[in-house]
């Protein structure tokens, strides 16, 4: 079973974000790391591949500047190889352009199963994996909280508003996993060393047969027309608990007639 995991390398979410004043896109010039949301997908892929003999896990990603540090993290966890699409023409790509690029890259690994996070931490559009599924002509099951497969059929517990659905789907298919579904392993020292020699294919959009007009800012077909400060919500009374914290909250709730 060939398992492809789509991952995104993002600016550290703990650092304050900024928008580029001219393009209004997220500034990505600093160090990029593997999106935490994607570590669940990588772990899920490794576990599912471990259960089906002859499986291999390939990491697929796209980044404008040849960034590989996040990919090395995924390789150190145990993935066999990675495909990185890196091209100046990709800057400013929207979710659909990204899906076109990643679908073309994933095809190279002849995937039986494609795994992605439900959404990225920095862009959180949440549509890319399904757009990719449509482009690959595959069914998709989103918001998975449990996944199993025998290499032929995918069985998923899919989150719903009121609980979850048992969903079944033949492979090949795309599945998106919610955070917390598995406990991502920490790369071992051995894994980190092994990752240094694992192959990363770096491709341009031309290698994938895509045209610069389909991706990047040209392909996005949307623009930011304004960025403004949101109405600030003033803070109220902040008090240090001197053993009366609970009482103060009760008094506040009483005043609002909640209790």
């Amino acid at each position: 079973m060939n398992v492809v995991v789509c991952v995104k390398q993002i600016p550290d979410p703990a650092a304050p974000g900024a928008l580029d004043p001219s393009t209004h896109t997220l500034v990505r010039s600093g160090k990029l790391i593997l999106d935490d949301s994607d570590s669940y997908g990588v772990e899920m892929a490794l576990q599912l591949a471990g259960n089906v003999e002859g499986s291999e896990v390939t990491i697929v990603s796209m980044a404008p500047n040849g960034e590989t540090s996040g990919l090395r993290t995924a390789l150190a966890m145990g993935a066999a190889r990675a495909i990185l699409v890196s091209d100046d023409a990709l800057a400013g790509s929207d979710a659909l352009s990204t899906a076109k690029v990643l679908a073309a890259a994933a095809r190279r690994a002849a995937p039986d199963l494609v795994i992605a996070a439900t959404e990225s931490t920095d862009g959180y559009t949440g549509t890319m994996p399904v757009q990719m599924a449509e482009l690959l002509g595959m069914p998709s099951v989103t918001f998975a909280k449990r996944v199993s497969t025998d290499g032929t059929t995918l069985k998923v517990e899919r989150q719903t508003e009121s609980g979850y659905d048992d969903v079944e789907c033949p492979l090949p298919a795309v599945v998106t996993v919610t955070a917390g579904v598995v406990e991502p392993r920490y790369p071992s020292f051995k894994g980190i060393m092994a990752a240094k020699s694992k192959p990363i294919d770096v491709l341009s959009i031309g290698d994938l047969g895509l045209d610069a007009g389909q991706v990047g800012r040209a392909g996005a077909r949307q623009e930011v027309v304004d960025v403004s400060e949101a109405e600030a919500r003033g803070s109220g009374e902040i008090v240090v608990d001197e053993g009366d914290g609970a009482q103060r909250i009760v008094a506040f709730l009483e005043q609002l007639k909640v209790v």
Partner: peptide, 24 residues
């Protein structure tokens, strides 16, 4: 709507029509 099924439909439709989506 930005719901579980809504986002699935929007993503599929976007790729089918080759139209971008604006989300959130």
């Amino acid at each position: 709507p930005a719901s579980y099924d809504g986002r699935d439909i929007a993503g599929r439709l976007s790729a089918k029509l080759d139209r971008p989506v604006l989300t959130n």
